[in-house]
Nucleic acid binder design. Structure first.
Length: 509
RNA sequence: GGCCCGUUCGUCUAGGGGUUAGGACGCAGGAUUUUCAUUCCUGUAACACGGGUUCGAUUCCCGUACGGGCUACCA
């Protein structure tokens, strides 16, 4: 039987990075086994629906290259629709089927009434101990129940959990976990608005979509016993999927799981894409907008809670697929280590070809009104790729490759420049101006020859050239920069610099 | 509170009854680069604690502590 897995996020806002990892693992597992990866939207809570969230999820998966074989936004298959609200009419019959079999019941208690009980009684929950004291089809005569149903009174359908038995859950990551049915509450399956809860919808859909493996977050482990009961109630235990509950992603420091607020708090993205919410507090910067390469984000995320063994750190997507196995997923929560994420991005940028980088940084160059021709961009990328971490760094840290120098490092100028050098410097500029072969090696040779002729030291000249061209002591090799900028621009900058240098020294007094 | 899950360097992790407990990030030092960065080398640092089982436990078992999750007509 072929593997079929699903990623089933809820469109309640931006897709959290933990959700992205869940999607990744599902994707890897499906690809590894030649199976099917499905995207299903779990929008059964109408109150929490957020416009745009579904598109956000789809765009995130597209950006990362985790393309589902079927699912909302990715074309259909025989199992659609893939949005649970579009499947709404089908759930009621399943809930009622459970009622008929004695595994569920109608309940008329209002949310307010239950809330009152919870306030009055410590640890109140609806279960085998309390249900006979509540208002439901187990405590009301059959004709009264029918009367209320016919009258259209609001009700929910609850799972009837029988006490006194063990419910083993076989988890692929944690082994066998046993729950006592006495501890389980009578979960709502069908809500008063006619929508199923997650519990019902997820079982019905997984069954109908012939899901073989449920790979989801650890927060679902406690309710898995209910899910097993549901499979039994429907008589689907033979095709019940296998479960794998993933460890959570924790805050970089402190206690608890990573939350959306941590992004702003620690100055790092915790979402794949930027999200514009109703308020600034509900708006977030994404990995994409920070300047991550999708492959780097994926590599980083994959290793947060999983490792195939051995010493390899860098995994392309196809290598992740090849190496992936559920058995190697860790059991304990993993802290979100942004420093490591940065390192991965840096490595992926370094490993990218110049043409590819040119394509990636073109949008940033365009936004700043810089020149965007392929040749220039790819050469600039070549000069900068060893010294950047994020995509925007190319045009920010390397702004001087695209526009006149804005900020000069006055401190170093004052240390290196002496107005008495001006005549020599001017003759250097003249020499450079007369150099025909402006390729970096030839230029370097010519300038070093000049240095020798003038009985200077490289240290007297090179830093000044760098300052004149870039304004800063950081950056690519001077002659590479000069070659890229071209003779005209280089000479212009050198001439401008003489004045800037003099002024810097004068103002330093 | 109850139920469930977890615990190897600061972090991500490998490993597994007898190992100098390995790698990576970070950090520190050095080499190269007359800048910065890259690269390379070196160093730093861990089996939560207490009981068992065993000739021998970091590894298996039980407790404790700590951490985490769940406990909605949310997912």
């Amino acid at each position: 039987m072929s593997v079929r897995v699903r990623f089933a996020p809820s469109p309640t806002g931006a897709l959290h990075i933990g959700g992205v990892r869940t999607a990744l693992y599902n994707y890897l597992f499906a690809r590894k086994h030649g199976g099917t990866f499905i995207l299903r939207i779990e929008d059964t809570d109408q109150g929490r629906y957020v416009p745009g969230a579904e598109d956000y999820i789809i765009e995130s998966l597209q950006w990362l290259g985790l393309t589902p074989d079927e699912g909302q936004g990715f074309g259909g298959g025989p199992d659609g629709p893939y949005r649970q609200s579009d499947r709404k009419p089908m759930y009621r019959q399943y809930a009622e089927q459970l009622v008929q079999r004695g595994h569920a019941y109608y309940a008329f208690d209002t949310p307010e009434a239950l809330e009152a009980r919870r306030n009055a009684e410590e640890n109140f929950t609806c279960n085998f101990r309390t249900r006979l004291s509540l208002d439901n089809s187990l405590t009301q005569p059959a004709d009264e129940v029918q009367r209320r149903l016919d009258a259209g009174l609001p009700y929910v359908i609850r799972l009837k959990v029988e006490p006194g038995r063990d419910i083993p859950v076989h988890d692929l990551i944690r082994g066998e976990v046993v729950f006592q049915s006495d501890e389980l509450d009578d979960k709502v399956l069908l809500k008063a608005d006619g929508m199923p809860t997650y519990h019902l919808a997820n079982i019905v859909d997984d069954h109908l979509m012939r899901i073989t493996h449920v790979i989801r977050g650890e927060e679902w482990l406690p309710s898995t016993a209910h899910h097993v009961l549901l499979y039994e109630g429907f008589g689907w235990q033979d095709t019940m999927p296998k479960f794998a509950h993933l460890p959570l992603i924790l805050k970089p420091v402190g206690n608890g799981k990573l939350s959306k607020r941590d992004g702003a708090k620690f100055g790092m993205p915790v979402f794949p894409l930027s999200w514009k919410g109703e308020t600034p507090e509900d708006s977030f910067t994404g990995f994409r907008e920070t300047g991550f390469l999708p492959a780097a984000a994926l590599n980083f995320l994959a290793l947060l809670g999983w490792h195939p063994g051995g010493d390899q750190e860098m995994f392309r997507l196809d290598e992740l697929v090849q190496a992936f196995s559920i058995e190697h997923i860790g059991k304990s929560g993993a802290r979100f280590d942004f420093e490591k994420a940065k390192w991965f991005n840096q490595k992926y940028i370094q490993a990218s070809g110049n043409a590819e980088l040119a394509r990636l940084i073109r949008p940033y160059a365009e936004a700043k009104g810089y020149r965007t021709d392929e040749a220039y961009l790819s050469q600039a990328a070549a000069l900068m790729k060893e010294r950047v971490t994020f995509l925007p760094d190319f045009t920010e840290q390397g702004a001087y490759l695209f526009e006149p120098v804005r900020d000069y490092d006055f401190e170093t100028i004052q240390k290196k420049w002496n107005p008495a050098q001006q005549p020599v410097f001017e003759s250097l500029v003249a020499t450079i101006e007369q150099t025909d072969d402006f390729a970096a090696p030839a230029l370097e040779e010519r300038v070093k020859q000049f240095i020798q002729e003038q009985h200077l030291k490289p240290g007297d000249v090179l830093p000044l050239l760098r300052l004149a061209l870039a304004g800063t002591m950081k950056g690519p090799a001077v002659f590479d920069m000069a070659a890229l900028l071209g003779k005209t621009e280089t000479v212009n900058r050198l001439r401008t610099a003489i004045e800037v240098f003099n002024q810097a020294v004068v103002s330093a007094g």
